[in-house]
């Protein structure tokens, strides 16, 4: 299959990627600082996961080129992952807590 017309996009400049890289390093630095400071676990988890999602989004959008692809590719790939992750979180963790509360011999 040859590339249909319009599939070749204007290549983003290297400068953009370097900026993304710098941002990723900065966000990592924030995570490291959080690790040094040590806040309560719930807060830590929320902040760290938010940072990770942002980092993942940056990697996917720029390094993995998703930002420059057709929107429907994003809509094909990402929702499935998000839905399944939500399902895991909604239905797995109640049982984890249940396990803790109903543990034998505690």
């Amino acid at each position: 299959m040859s590339h249909p017309a319009g599939a070749e996009h204007a290549e983003p400049a290297s400068k953009l990627f370097i900026w993304v890289w710098i941002w990723l390093l900065l966000l990592t630095a924030v995570e490291v600082v959080l690790g040094y400071e040590q806040y309560p676990v719930k807060l830590m988890l929320t902040m760290l996961m938010s940072l990770s999602v942002i980092k993942a989004a940056l990697i996917m959008a720029y390094f993995m080129h998703l930002r420059f692809e057709k929107l429907k590719l994003v809509l094909t790939l990402v929702p499935a992952l998000v839905v399944i992750l939500c399902l895991f979180s909604i239905f797995f963790f109640p049982d984890s807590l249940r396990l803790m509360n109903l543990g034998w011999g505690r």
Binding site: V83, L87, F91, P94, D95, R98
Partner: peptide
């Protein structure tokens, strides 16, 4: 099909609230 796996686990000790949703 991805939302119903818990119906195999109604009596498994899973949270009974999850069971209602499933």
């Amino acid at each position: 099909g991805f939302f119903v796996w818990g119906h195999h686990m109604f009596i498994s000790g899973m949270s009974p609230y999850s069971a209602v949703a499933f």
